[in-house]
Design a protein around this nucleic acid. Structure first.
Lengths: 158, 158
DNA sequence: CAAAAATATTTTAAGCCTAAAGTTTTTGAT
DNA sequence: ATCAAAAACTTTAGGCTTAAAATATTTTTG
């Protein structure tokens, strides 16, 4: 029988998961802050507007407002404001949907498409620099692992 | 000599790093959204207010406003508003700093400390559930890897 | 067909966030 | 001692974000 009581209790897994979450949050906030700042300085743009243009760039026919908020996982009212500003800038247009006067499709203009191409190229460079401490294999492995996490977090809601 | 031209060019590392960043961002946004929603529903609280209380809970003597915004990496004006709301709720107090009438230290009240303890326990449980697909070792390894990333991202600025 | 329900979107109120400007107080250099 | 610079903090203006309410239109149902 051991004479000394075991005062060295093992750390529960929840503590390691909490630490993982805090690091994940800190890392993504740091990268995001740098991207926001770069977009602001180099293009007078914002990350939400970039995100909307990125989503639209994958749909030549445009997206309805509700589809846009669904893809981006933000509220409808949020998208309204961002599309308003992109419209003022001439980067997108609202196009009436034939047969449904409630809805409109949002499409990139030619100007918006050209501007997004410039921003996306710079964006990829910035990310490549910030994550340069990951070699290609490590980046691929970790991306796949996070993809699994995203799947578990989102399954049973769509 | 090979007769066929090599049309299958390798993917550059920047694409894998971009994919990693997009997954990292999506995962952290999903977790964060769930935590925000839980804090709102279960405690009528918000993540920024939780973050401020978490920072204060590590400093019994309280923190000056500027130290608080430094720890949290947010702007001074931002902290002003959040501390105003926490003060209205009775969770924190501004205490005058002897010898410097410009500054004040923010301290958790007893009520704030008790409330934070409840929220922090729930928060750890929520994170543990959301990241349950990571076993303890994987969580520890990945947390350490992200810690290195955070270090490279922040070095040469503090 | 008319009323009710559902859908698409915008508006509103409140909070979060930043950069920049403003206020008050302290420090430092002359 | 004075006075300019620095420091601590708040205020402001503008944008992002949500939940909830409001508006307009379409679909369903009795």
């Amino acid at each position: 029988m051991s004479q000394k009581p075991n005062t060295q209790v093992p750390e529960p897994a929840s503590k390691d998961r909490l630490r993982l979450w805090l690091r994940l949050l800190k890392a993504s906030r740091l990268v995001e802050a740098e991207l926001r700042e770069n977009l602001r300085q180099k293009f007078g743009a914002t990350l939400p507007r970039f995100d909307v243009m990125a989503a639209l760039s994958r749909y030549d026919e445009g997206l309805k407002m509700s589809a846009l908020s669904g893809v981006l996982r933000v509220s409808n009212g949020n998208v309204t404001g961002i599309v308003d500003r992109l419209t003022e800038e001439g980067h997108v247009v609202r196009v009436a949907v034939p047969g449904d006067r409630r809805a409109s499709k949002v499409c990139l203009t030619d100007q918006g498409r050209a501007e997004f191409a410039r921003q996306a190229a710079a964006h990829e460079t910035w990310v490549d620099e910030m994550l340069s401490s990951f070699d290609q294999d490590e980046a691929a492995v970790l991306a796949t692992r996070l993809d699994h996490l995203v799947t578990t977090l989102t399954e049973g809601e769509d």
